[in-house]
Design a protein around this nucleic acid. Structure first.
Length: 187
DNA sequence: CTTATGATGTACT
DNA sequence: GTACATCATAAGG
């Protein structure tokens, strides 16, 4: 694991921006999917009305208060899973929603779950990304930093990428915060 | 291209 | 009951 705690333990906005261009590596039955992260959103705590942690700790959002570098996975609209990486110091809620990616390796494995649709539609949404990587509630609380031979890991980007900050998607509160980060053009 | 809507589980008022 | 960090389809322009 070549990404370390202090990367995740920093400010959520900085982590969300710096995750753009990083790699998401998923091993399933000895086969590997690698995806470049192209879109993220930052969610904080009491200062962020759109965050699940806005009103304090609950059974669902507990991972957001935990140690950075773990996953927060939840069921969205009763149908889709969304995966977040926990940020900030322990007991300070924060997480980065991984919203979209671009296939780098294992396109065939992705299509096993996503079907044979246009490339552009395979990974362009948080529910799609989770489905493509076979991430569900069993990954809630998963520690990206611990395992020696992880089922899921994040690897650093080789360089900084041009990133645009825009308003977040699909929320009705705090829509004006430019806390969504997108990889500009083609990396 | 755009907007509309049904599917569906959980958290919250 | 209502809202919700969504997606795949269908219908309209």
């Amino acid at each position: 694991v070549d990404i370390h705690l202090r990367f995740f333990e920093q400010d959520t906005l900085a982590a969300a921006e710096q995750l753009i261009g990083c790699y998401l590596a998923r091993k399933i039955d000895g086969r590997e999917i690698i995806v470049r992260i192209t879109e993220t959103e930052a969610y904080k705590g009491s200062e962020d009305p759109a965050s699940h942690a806005y009103r304090g700790k609950t059974a669902r959002n507990t991972p957001m208060f935990g140690r950075a570098g773990k996953l927060y996975v939840y069921l969205s609209y009763g149908l889709h899973y969304c995966m977040n990486v926990v940020t900030e110091a322990e007991n300070v809620p924060g997480a980065v929603l991984l919203r979209a990616g671009k296939a780098v390796q294992g396109l065939d494995l992705i299509r096993e779950r996503r079907g044979s649709m246009a490339d552009k539609q395979l990974l362009n949404g948080p529910g799609k990304l989770a489905q493509a990587l076979s991430i569900a509630l069993d990954f809630n609380g998963y520690d990206l930093l611990q395992p020696a031979n992880p089922q899921l890991a994040i690897h650093p980007r080789e360089r900084a990428y041009p990133v645009a900050a825009t308003p977040r998607i699909g929320i009705s509160k705090a829509q004006e915060y430019p806390w969504r980060f997108i990889l500009r053009d083609n990396g």
